[in-house]
């Protein structure tokens, strides 16, 4: 697996899209820092970009990379290598190279603006951890969807719908339900519903840390109220790990039963 991972990263590190992704974050972060040198504010702005963009790019890259390397995967499958090593290696290669682009793209500008001497370093680290976790979750989901669907257009469509669902539709439904059933006690439901969406969960992790939950919608406030900072962090972190594991388990069970 490590060898497949190594070559996947090697291949992706030469892809122009990896650099476009890196350059986008670099320019965007630099622009925000130029507009406001208050690191805390920039971290909050970056949070919104990271929460939407990381899942979207990971989803698109995941599907594209899987379909583009389909024939090469067949060549690898004919080698004396375990099936699962090939898919996990490719998935980790993709998620890692996207994460490296993200880390460097955001990390370099912040370093220039004196991050290491500021009090916001922990908030910044939470932002990066969330970005990386979302990249891993959504590239895993995309890999799983692509593995399940031979038809590329269908696979692409489903992956985009999955992203749209978690990034936009889910919150819409969530808020509608809260509105319709506002007469009832909804605290436990809200908490549970929040855990089911990794983007909401990342948002909460950041909000709890940044202490601006009141500004960022209902789900964040609920989470803060019920779990408190330390416990909330632990639960959210644990569920986020579960979210990373879920597509990996899906990839494993599908890959072991699939014909190539």
């Amino acid at each position: 697996m490590i060898k497949i991972l190594k070559y996947s990263i090697y291949d992706l590190m030469r892809s122009r899209w990896t650099y476009v992704y890196f350059a986008f974050f670099l320019l965007f972060t630099f622009s925000l820092l130029l507009l406001s040198s208050d690191l805390s504010r920039v971290i909050i702005s970056m949070m919104n970009v990271v929460l939407i963009l990381c899942p979207l790019i990971a989803t698109m890259f995941g599907v594209m990379y899987f379909y583009n390397s389909r024939e090469f995967t067949e060549l690898l499958l004919a080698q004396p290598i375990k099936r699962i090593s090939i898919f996990w290696g490719q998935y980790l290669g993709l998620a890692s190279s996207l994460s490296i682009s993200l880390l460097l793209g955001i990390g370099i500008p912040f370093t220039f603006y004196g991050l290491f001497y500021s009090a916001e370093i922990l908030d910044f680290l939470i932002l990066l951890i969330n970005g990386v976790a979302l990249t891993f979750i959504f590239s895993g989901l995309a890999f799983f969807i692509a593995l399940k669907n031979e038809n590329r257009i269908r696979g692409f469509g489903l992956a985009i719908i999955a992203w749209l669902f978690f990034a936009v539709i889910y919150d819409g439904i969530f808020l509608l339900l809260l509105m319709f059933f506002r007469e009832y006690p909804l605290e436990q439901f809200s908490l549970f519903a929040t855990l089911l969406n990794p983007i909401d969960l990342s948002r909460i992790l950041l909000l709890l840390k940044l202490d601006i939950s009141a500004l960022m919608g209902f789900s964040g406030a609920v989470f803060r109220q019920f779990l408190g900072t330390t416990l909330g962090m632990l639960v959210a972190g644990f569920v986020l790990m579960f979210w990373i594991g879920l597509p990996l388990w899906g990839i494993r069970s599908t890959a072991l039963r699939k014909d190539f």
Partner: peptide, 18 residues
């Protein structure tokens, strides 16, 4: 056992950046 077999797939498509 696949180390006993050399296989040429029908369609040749490789990672483009290597």
């Amino acid at each position: 056992y696949r180390s006993q077999i050399d296989y040429l797939p029908q369609i040749a498509q490789f990672p483009g950046n290597l």
